[in-house]
Write a protein that binds this DNA or RNA. Structure first.
Lengths: 175, 175
DNA sequence: AACAAGTATCTTGATGAGCGAGATTATCCG
DNA sequence: CGGATAATCTCGCTCATCAAGATACTTGTT
């Protein structure tokens, strides 16, 4: 769409670029719509997923880190966590060792919501994957994994371009 | 992350699912950061891209359709278009045939912005693609194209789940 | 101990994006 | 013309986010 080339490979690259952009856009719309359906906004859903990811990874997230991940101010994070806690999606737990810290854990309601979100999505994804061989999926995985790395670098570059360079840099792979 | 399976193929599917989710998430963050860098918000950037896409496709978009695409109320669309017009990113043009309609065209500032957004991104994408053969890219394209279709269907399903079924359904392939 | 500096979270007041309902403007059809 | 329909815009409100500062706890130093 934005690059037109005459050679087949160039065309293929342009096509994939469009695919990726469309996929991301639609994914965002899905998130937006799903969130609205459940009385949340897009940020809330992101936050909920981040909390779940961190916990599943065995390393609960704190409000501070959540703010870094979502690129929110500390005040917004407090409001966000308040909302999610009030809605029964997550819990706050003070760290016993360092009592300044607060760990965020998902509550039942949050877990249910996440399952409802990813379940149907995963089903559709599985259908598509069913039409590809193991070797083909391996190629797709290799490609997408590299794209994720590339996109993370780009995100950091863009974030760094405004104001202070951000702290977190490429945070660990757990999301 | 959300599905752990023991067979290699199941693991591969889970990995790709994670790749896709991470990619979308990061893409969103990039959009958010880039928009902020230029005094816009994420919606504005989406809108700008939608306007450009429509125009490049030779079929300029109206505020009404823009609202459908972004899932915004009519009031929000007006405010959005006002913002973008005030910022010199787009222009309003009345249709000469049906003077109720307003067509949105991007202005110089908008075109520049879009180029600044997609340029560096495309560069990074190209780097990754350079590490894949033609055949491999063809597989990726086939996969992603199917995923886009699947995601669109899912989006419509989720949107339909709340309130009236939305009008637009799977809009034409042009974005 | 006591104090200072650092870190994590929370509070407050202001801004502005988005919604919903209704008003406005233009077109179509009898 | 007059009514119905359609597209866009206006208005009043709510709430997410920000920026700056307050609070609570920890760590290091003397």
């Amino acid at each position: 769409m934005y690059r037109r080339r005459d050679d087949p490979r160039g065309q293929m690259i342009a096509d994939i670029t469009n695919d990726l952009r469309r996929y991301s856009t639609e994914a965002q719309h899905v998130g937006h719509a799903f969130a609205g359906l459940h009385g949340l906004n897009a940020t809330d859903l992101h936050a909920l997923i981040a909390v779940m990811d961190a916990e599943l990874f065995g390393d609960p997230i704190t409000p501070g880190r959540l703010g870094e991940v979502l690129d929110l101010s500390s005040g917004s994070v407090t409001a966000l966590v308040d909302r999610l806690e009030r809605g029964g999606h997550i819990r706050r737990d003070r760290d016993t060792a360092d009592r300044r810290k607060v760990f965020l854990h998902y509550a039942d309601r949050g877990a249910t919501l996440a399952r409802d979100f990813f379940g149907p999505l995963g089903q559709r994804t599985d259908e598509v994957m069913g039409r590809f061989s193991d070797e083909e999926l391996a190629v797709v995985h290799r490609f997408m994994a590299e794209m994720v790395v590339s996109m993370r670098e780009h995100r950091d570059a863009v974030r760094a371009a405004r104001g202070e360079p951000r702290r977190g840099a490429t945070e660990r792979a757990a999301d």
